[in-house]
Nucleic acid binder design. Structure first.
Lengths: 333, 333
DNA sequence: TTGAAAGCGTTACCAA
DNA sequence: TTGGTAACGCTTTCAA
């Protein structure tokens, strides 16, 4: 008869090896404060291997009073290659520092509820992209033992470290560039898709700021990511009389540029188009798409910030302005 | 003097409310087997709120002997909108069933090591995309209490449930379509980027299968995702004499199509091009890009599979072939 | 060099 | 209606 195999515990390993649980712990954790004979070590390891023993992280961190888990809410919207690469880097760098990165699927959880769910896991650090965390959230996390809270997004939050992703700078770049190219009636695409406002509105504000006092008109253009919406926007273009558009990012730019061309407008003669994110695909269009190249912070730098913050939880919150924005002019502007 | 606030435990809540820890647990978990007076309930809740009490998930699952955590390794490569959407759906659907989805950052961990790291968290279920899990991994996970292991990828693994993503079908679709359009010398792009082989090779195999016995030549085309690589491939095109190409996906297709056009080749007259994934951007090209539309399983269906498997861990592994593939002919083929 | 035992925060059983 | 207590798996201090 087949025995349903119960999950082996360190006690099982101890029994099989003929030692105490303490000894098992010493051996498997290479505790240097205690000398264990080589023979015993082998017996223990062998027993662990034989049973397929895997330590229980919950029990361990319960006993230890802390974990090495860095928690991030999983992004709810599709992220581009830029951010994906950054995430991979970050995971790698934190892994090197012996942290474990875990993305928590918060889909469907609302602000405070989500924060409580994160806090239940007692992560040593929490990294929050975007703007979904308020000061109360930070307090709640710290109360439940989180040693470092880092936001990465447009604004800073009281009590948390911040990597300020200055999306206004993206808009400023684009706005200044279009102005310099002689454009004076500028449209700015603001996607209607939910969840993008956190980036789109600062970009719009950046354009406005760059053009303040120049007498240049800035028009907000809500746009859905569909061909129909783009065609509609293009159809009304001549009436609106815009001579340039900053299209939020390269994808919206490609969509809109095609619609404009189909409407018989010449790019860049009649209307200049610029995107953002410097996607490879933008170079393939004709005319080649101008874009704002965005430089994210290195994963290593962020990992080091996290590590510093964890080691000195009482320290002043660090605030870094990251995100380099530079115009890459191609042919569409 | 400011007291460094220790994380409040249920004992603290009990003390403040003047009741026992047991009562606190009853109230906060709405245990229906026990009747607690409304006055006590209020006192307990009030105390919990005041202290900012958040239960300790590790302690809870240690006591309970199980958790509701569904673990997935975090994808190491950028994923497109298709897969992102699927992930969001899945998280939402599992959330509805009261599971918590956690993506484990496995960057830098090798096969067995990664599996052990997952097992340490004692997830109730593990979902593994791709082909990184072997039968020993499944055994290890089950031994440490994982009630359901589901792979989602090209092949099945002993002991695990499988959602077979039949990428060969994608290739078969594309191959059959190109043949039907009269093409007889077909190239198939295989990205050189690491991590894509798991999808690219089955797609190639699918093309081969579709054309077996027809006397149609199938040529494997390694390609990097850069303009230079694409230009080089295009430069050698006439010599190779291929009259069609299935370009792995829409992004590689867009890249290659541009390079071919720049080389003076007419699409689709001289060479037919088809991609896969049905990205919006493919519709914006001229000629519009033909593609293989891929239908992933619904998040709800997978969530239900997971739930079934968790409830009946002894049951036979289910194997479902998912991933509907249909050709969307536009103008490039 | 090894073992016994305490305790981390919870919950569930059994008494009161 | 409420409280005491044991147990989950692990690490670590203290004692042998």
């Amino acid at each position: 008869m087949v025995q349903i195999p119960n999950t082996p515990t360190s006690a099982d390993v101890a029994r099989l090896a003929g030692v105490s649980r303490a000894t098992v712990s010493y051996v498997l954790n290479n505790t240097s404060a205690v000398r264990i004979s080589e023979a015993t070590r082998r017996r223990v390891r062998e027993a662990a291997r034989e049973l397929g023993y895997v330590p229980h992280a919950a029990a361990r961190s319960l006993r230890a009073g802390h974990s090495r888990m860095v928690l991030m809410p999983a992004p709810a919207i599709p992220v581009g290659p830029l951010y994906s690469g950054f995430l991979s880097d970050l995971q790698w760098a934190l892994g090197r520092l012996d942290y474990t990165v875990v993305q928590y699927g918060s889909v469907g959880l609302q602000g405070d509820e989500a924060v409580r769910a994160w806090a239940e896991l007692r992560p040593v650090a929490v990294l929050v992209p975007g703007a979904g965390l308020g000061p109360e959230g930070v307090v709640l996390l710290k109360r439940s033992g989180t040693r470092a809270v880092v936001t990465l997004g447009p604004g800073r939050v009281d009590g948390a470290h911040a990597l300020l992703m200055d999306h206004e700078a993206v808009g400023r770049c684009a706005g200044a560039h279009l102005y310099e190219r002689g454009r004076r009636r500028i449209g700015v695409v603001v996607p209607v898709e939910p969840g993008l406002d956190a980036y789109a509105l600062p970009r719009l504000a950046g354009v406005r700021e760059a053009l303040r006092g120049t007498g240049t008109g800035v028009t907000e253009l809500p746009l859905a990511y569909t061909e129909e919406a783009a065609a509609e926007a293009a159809a009304g273009w001549r009436a609106a009389g815009l001579d340039a558009v900053f299209a939020y990012n390269d994808e919206y730019a490609m969509l809109l540029m095609r619609a404009l061309q189909d409407e018989g407008l010449r790019v860049p003669e009649d209307v200049a188009v610029i995107g953002a994110d410097d996607l490879m695909l933008g170079r393939l269009l004709r005319p080649r798409l101008s874009t704002v190249h965005i430089e994210l912070p290195s994963g290593r730098a962020l990992a080091e910030l996290v590590d510093r913050a964890v080691r000195d939880p009482g320290g002043e919150p660090e605030v870094h302005t990251v995100l380099g924005a530079t115009v890459v002019r191609r042919e569409s502007s």
